[in-house]
C-alpha cells in the first residue's frame, strides 16, 4: 500500500461502530462502505452524484455516498440500504420465494411485488430514497414523488412499476394509520432510519 494511509477512524453505520483501517484520505464514503466495511449495497454507477445509486442517509439527510469523503462522516449516523431490513436473506436468489421473507421493509416488499426491480442496480438507492421521501412526506402527490426521486436513475423499468410500488406503500401506510394509530413497524421506522443492523460483513466471491 502507498504511504498516504490515514490513521484508523471509526464510522457509525446502521447503528454500529465500524473501524476503518488502511484507508487513503481520498476515499469516498461509498468506497469505504463497499470495499472496507463489506457493505456493497450502495452502488457505484456514476460516482459523480448524478444517479442516486449510492443513496445513503447521513444524520438523516439523503446524500450520495460517492460525494462524501468517508473521513468527513466520522461522528455521523450513517444508514445504508443494509440497515433498512431486519436480518440477512440468502444470497443471489437460489430460493423460490413466492412469499417474500418477513425481513423486508414495506418499501422493499412493494418494490419486488410491484415489479419495480429488474436488474436491481438502482434499487438500493431507490429504496433508501423512497424511505426518506415517505418519512418526510407520508402522502406525496404524483408530481411530488417524481420531483423527489428525479435524482435516482433507473435504466430498466421506465419507472412505472416503481411509482406503483410507492403508491402501494402510501396506500398501505395510510390504511394502517387509519386502523391503528399506535401501530409501529420495526422495519419501517417513521424517520426512515435503521433499527436493526445486518452484522454480516462477508463478501461474495
Amino acid at each position: 500500500m502507498t504511504a498516504e494511509v490515514q490513521t484508523p477512524y471509526e464510522l457509525t453505520v446502521n447503528g454500529r461502530p465500524r473501524l476503518v483501517e488502511d484507508a487513503l484520505p481520498t476515499e469516498s464514503l461509498l468506497f469505504v462502505l463497499r470495499e472496507r466495511l463489506g457493505l456493497p449495497g450502495s452502488k457505484n454507477a456514476c460516482e459523480q452524484g448524478e444517479c442516486g445509486s449510492c443513496s445513503v442517509l447521513v444524520d438523516g439527510v439523503l446524500v450520495c455516498a460517492c460525494l462524501e469523503l468517508a473521513g468527513a462522516t466520522v461522528g455521523c449516523e450513517i444508514t445504508t440500504v443494509e440497515g433498512l431490513g431486519k436480518a440477512a436473506s440468502n444470497g443471489n436468489g437460489e430460493s423460490d420465494p413466492l412469499d417474500l421473507p418477513d425481513m423486508l421493509s414495506d418499501v422493499q416488499r412493494a418494490m419486488v411485488e410491484a415489479g419495480g426491480v429488474q436488474c436491481g442496480f438502482c434499487t438500493p438507492g431507490f429504496v433508501v430514497a423512497i424511505h426518506d421521501l415517505l418519512a418526510r412526506n407520508p402522502a406525496p402527490g404524483p408530481l411530488a414523488v417524481r420531483e423527489a426521486l428525479a435524482g435516482n436513475l433507473c435504466r430498466c423499468t421506465g419507472y412505472g412499476r416503481i411509482l406503483a410500488a410507492i403508491q402501494s406503500v402510501v396506500d398501505a401506510r395510510t390504511d394502517d394509520a387509519r386502523t391503528d394509530d399506535a401501530r409501529t413497524d420495526d422495519a419501517t421506522t417513521d424517520d426512515g432510519r435503521a433499527v436493526d443492523v445486518r452484522v454480516d460483513g462477508s463478501r461474495t466471491s
Binding site: L39, P40, G41, S42, T80, V81, E82, L84, G85, A88, S89, N90, G91, N92, G93, E94, S95, D96, P97, L100, P101, M103, L104, V107, Q108, R109, M111, V112, V117, G120, T123, P124, V127
Partner: peptide
C-alpha cells in the same frame, strides 16, 4: 426470485 436480495442490497 432475486428480488429480495436486490432490495436488500445483498
Amino acid at each position: 426470485p432475486d428480488g429480495a436480495a436486490k432490495v436488500r442490497g445483498e
